[in-house]
């Protein structure tokens, strides 16, 4: 039987130190889907990604990747399960050069892009390959963070607020890139506040409030849920 779910979170509880941030999250991400987590600041979206990447003080519940429980896999082996991660602050190593950043991550799969394809997508990265990553602009750092993960070749990418604080030209660029990745069959779990951006990309939406999933619906039902979205996002 082929497992349909690429990633499944079941009854996830998560803690930062003593304070509990997740109260039983349930999320299923089907293979090839782009899934968006929506919610206000502090609702638990980023925390959910951190629970998957095991960066919380304590996490309980089951996390499966391709049907295999990964909640007990050592943290440094998660990437080899085909999980790529682009954190909220982009996580570029600012003291390392752009090139060093790109070559750093171990190869975990082959579904990724070739270096040539990446260069055509990110021309500025190529030009500045000897510069320390810390000297790049925010948009360029986001490009670098995405390029770095794609080179490693995961089949699932966790993206945390990729457009936050970026100029429109970069937002456009990232949207194009994600469309392309979708076409290649990559699975994407996206945390994003920018509704305009998410609308065009996501196949399924999860609304998160106070560490819980309060609703989820496919993209086709987006129009029926406008009221709910407005309420949850508080716009």
């Amino acid at each position: 039987m082929i497992e349909e779910n690429c990633l499944a979170l079941s009854d996830i509880h998560g803690w930062y130190g003593e304070s509990k941030a997740l109260h039983g999250i349930e999320i299923n991400v089907k293979r090839g889907q782009t899934v968006a987590l929506m919610g206000r600041n502090g609702a638990g979206k980023t925390t959910t990604l951190r629970a998957i990447t095991r960066q919380l003080t304590r996490t309980e519940g089951s996390i499966t990747k391709d049907g295999q429980d990964i909640s007990a896999v050592p943290r440094h082996k998660l990437a080899y399960k085909g999980i790529g991660f682009v954190p909220e602050d982009r996580g570029t190593y600012n003291s390392l050069s752009v090139q060093e950043n790109l070559k750093l991550l171990p190869k975990v799969g082959n579904s990724g892009m070739s270096i040539d394809e990446l260069h055509s997508f990110f021309p500025n990265i190529q030009e500045r390959r000897h510069a320390p990553a810390g000297t790049l602009s925010g948009g360029e750092q986001q490009m670098l963070a995405m390029a770095r993960v794609l080179l490693a070749g995961p089949d699932l990418i966790l993206l945390d607020e990729p457009t936050e604080g970026l100029a429109p030209v970069f937002v456009q660029k990232i949207a194009e890139l994600l469309q392309d990745l979708k076409k290649r069959g990559l699975t994407i779990l996206l945390v994003e506040q920018n509704m305009l951006f998410t609308r065009k990309l996501a196949d399924h939406f999860y609304m998160i409030e106070n560490g819980l999933v309060v609703a989820d619906f496919p993209a086709e039902e987006l129009s029926e849920n406008e009221e709910l979205i407005s309420r949850v996002l508080g716009v």
Partner: peptide, 25 residues
């Protein structure tokens, strides 16, 4: 060297480096 850049990366952000697949311990 590459191994040097891995060391510097793990120094700069140990927990994220682990998520990226580097065996920091």
């Amino acid at each position: 060297t590459k191994i040097g850049s891995i060391l510097r990366a793990a120094t700069e952000n140990p927990s994220l480096s682990e998520v990226f697949g580097l065996n920091v311990p």
